[in-house]
Design a protein around this nucleic acid. Structure first.
Length: 443
DNA sequence: TATGATGATTGGCC
DNA sequence: GGCCAATCATCATA
């Protein structure tokens, strides 16, 4: 059996809308004439098939001419439909084509990540949001501004490359799709290619290109992750606080040794104070989180090795005492030169000491006036309070250890907590008062 | 370069 | 959520 005959046989029994194939012949529906014309049509189909099968043996010009003839043949549409249907039924056209697969979860993950990192989606916001998040996690939203801008610049570079490549891929995909579609359309004049098949081919192309796109997204994600990890590592780079900043923190720590837990307000104020001194030198700020870190570290390290910190404690206590003494002297002088005011004028800002167990209640100035009742300014009052605390601690110590150190390890309780054996920490907050930072102890 | 100091991070606890 | 304790990583100095 020759090839033509075999194909002719293959066509046998296929029925399609509007055309019946009988004995290997596709027959258009009768247009008002009976089967007497049937032999002629059979002849037509046979003729077409013969021409198709021999077209490859012909020269190009010959083939072109034949092709044109075939395209214009009145039976061509019928034959085309039949061949298409056969292809459809034999599954040739859908080989390798999967229908409408659900969105790839990995691709979705990549898309989400690129969106979150600010690589995909609208330009502004995304990247800086990621930076802000990282910065917040580090507790220093502003002091890494140089690193942040560096991060942003690199991220924007990645973004740019990503979009350029994406555009290239899309362009290539479109070009290739158009090319293939044209080719298939062209070929559909000589071989059975249905529009549906072309659509499938387009979707296959898109799928292939989307896998390339996924690779692009994946490598972009990797680049972002590397950048991010580098940025996060950079966060670990630390700078020592300036001397002034450390001094401020130490002063607070040692003057609140009985309860070195600054409140949020106190931390904010300390951060502000430290930042002022730091910004004069380094050009960055100290945040509340850093203050918290500092106090956390300080408490633990102090507790672990109190002996080592005694000297430091003495130093700061002496410093505070001197400052306070100066303030008191100034206050005393002030109170002497100014006539006493009305009893109520300063009462609202006066540090209210607890009634019981407070050794400062009876503390008097050189003139014998009680500080409690003295009409001193708010700041002065704060300094007085500081001095009171320092004196109390000094006094408390000298009873126990013989005057070598101003602070007693007894401020730590047996459980390692901060409980001052001598001073009711919940009541005495040495620097407490208007204009001073507030300690947790006041709560 | 070794070592101590110190700021930051992490995991567990309350 | 704040604190503690352990640990890491870097800085500063001898």
């Amino acid at each position: 059996m020759d090839e033509q005959a075999r194909i002719m046989q293959t066509l046998g029994g296929v029925t399609l809308a509007g055309h019946t194939v009988q004995g290997g012949m596709a027959v258009p529906p009768p247009h008002g004439h009976d089967g007497s014309d049937g032999d002629g049509r059979k002849q037509d189909i046979g003729d077409i098939l013969h021409q198709i099968m021999t077209i490859t043996d012909q020269s190009l010009d010959e083939a072109q001419a034949k092709k044109h003839g075939l395209n214009c043949h009145r039976m061509k549409p019928a034959l085309f439909s039949v061949l298409c249907e056969i292809k459809e039924k034999t599954g040739l056209s859908i080989r390798g084509a999967q229908e409408e697969d659900p969105p790839d979860p990995q691709l979705m993950r990549l898309d989400n990540m690129l969106l979150a990192e600010g690589v995909a989606g609208p330009e502004k916001g995304g990247g800086s949001a990621a930076v802000a998040a990282a910065a917040t996690a580090s507790g220093s939203p502003t002091d890494n501004s140089i690193e942040h801008s560096d991060y942003r610049a690199k991220l924007s570079q990645i973004r740019q490359i990503y979009h350029t490549e994406l555009e290239k891929y899309e362009q290539a995909c479109n070009e290739f799709t158009t090319h293939v579609m044209n080719l298939l359309r062209e070929q559909s004049r000589t071989r059975p290619i249905s529009p549906k098949e072309i659509e499938r081919m387009v979707s296959i192309i898109h799928r292939k290109f989307s896998s390339i796109q996924m690779q692009l997204k994946q490598s972009t994600c990797e680049a972002v992750m590397i950048l991010r990890s580098r940025f996060l590592d950079a966060r670990r780079k630390r700078r020592n606080f300036s001397k002034q900043a450390t001094e401020i923190l130490n002063e607070y720590f040692y003057s609140h040794l009985s309860n070195p837990y600054p409140s949020e307000e106190a931390k904010e104020e300390l951060a502000k104070k430290c930042s002022i001194t730091v910004s004069q030198g380094v050009g960055s700020t100290i945040t509340v989180a850093q203050v918290s870190n500092w106090f956390g570290n300080k408490r633990i390290r102090y507790k672990k090795n109190i002996g080592k910190f005694q000297e430091e404690a003495n130093l700061y206590a002496a410093k505070t005492a001197v400052n306070a003494a100066h303030a008191v002297a100034a206050a005393v002088q002030n109170s002497q030169t100014n006539s006493p005011t009305t009893p109520n004028s300063g009462s609202s800002s006066t540090f209210n000491l607890p009634n019981s167990g407070n050794m400062f209640m009876s503390m008097q100035n050189p003139n014998g006036d009680s500080y409690q009742g003295a009409q001193v300014g708010a700041n002065v009052q704060s300094q007085v309070d500081t001095l009171r605390h320092v004196i109390s601690q000094t006094a408390g110590y000298s009873d126990d250890l013989g005057g070598n150190s101003m602070y007693s390890p007894h401020s730590l309780d047996a459980n390692g907590g901060w409980q001052d054996a001598m001073t009711p920490s919940s009541a005495i907050s040495p620097t407490e008062g208007p204009g001073s930072v507030h300690s947790d102890t006041s709560n």
